[in-house]
Amino acid sequence: MEMMAAQAGAARNTLTAYRTDLRLASESLGGSLSVADASALHRLAAHWSDLSRATVARKAAALRRFFAFLVEEGDRPDDPSSALPRPGTDRGLPRTLSHDDIDRLFAVVAARLERDPPLVPDLRLSALIELLYGSGLRASELVSLPRLAVQPDKPFLILKGKGGRERLVPLSDRARAAVAAWRMHVPADQAFLFPSGKSHLSRVRLFQIVRAVAIEAGIAPDRISPHVLRHAFATHLLEGGADLRALQSMLGHADIATTEIYTHVDRRHLVQLVNERHPLREALVDAGARAS
Rank of each mutant, 00 (worst) to 15 (best):
A10D: 10
N13R: 09
N13L: 07
N13D: 05
T14E: 07
T16C: 09
T20I: 13
L22P: 02
S26H: 09
D37R: 07
A40L: 06
A46P: 09
S49N: 14
D50E: 11
L51V: 03
R53N: 07
V56T: 09
A57C: 12
R58L: 01
A61T: 02
A62M: 00
L63R: 00
R65K: 11
F66H: 09
L70G: 05
E72Q: 13
D78S: 07
S82T: 12
T89W: 06
T89F: 03
L93Q: 04
P94F: 06
S98A: 05
S98K: 01
S98T: 15
H99A: 10
D101V: 00
D103I: 03
L105Y: 01
V109R: 04
A111L: 11
R112W: 03
D116I: 12
L119G: 11
P121F: 08
R124D: 08
A127H: 06
I129T: 13
Y133V: 03
G134V: 03
L137F: 02
E141W: 00
L142Y: 07
L145S: 08
P146I: 06
R147H: 01
D153G: 12
P155E: 01
L159S: 07
R165Q: 04
E166L: 15
R167Q: 10
P170K: 00
L171P: 12
S172N: 09
A178R: 06
A180L: 14
M184R: 13
H185Q: 15
H185E: 15
H185S: 09
A188M: 05
Q190L: 02
F194Y: 01
K198S: 15
R203H: 05
V210C: 10
V213S: 10
V213P: 10
A220L: 12
P221L: 14
P226K: 11
P226D: 11
H231N: 14
A232M: 03
L237G: 01
G240P: 04
G241S: 03
G241I: 04
A242V: 05
S249G: 10
S249W: 08
S249K: 11
S249P: 00
G252I: 07
H253S: 07
T259S: 02
I261H: 05
R267T: 15
E276N: 12
R277S: 12
R277F: 13
H278V: 13
A283V: 14
D286H: 11
D286I: 10
D286M: 14
A287N: 06
S292I: 15
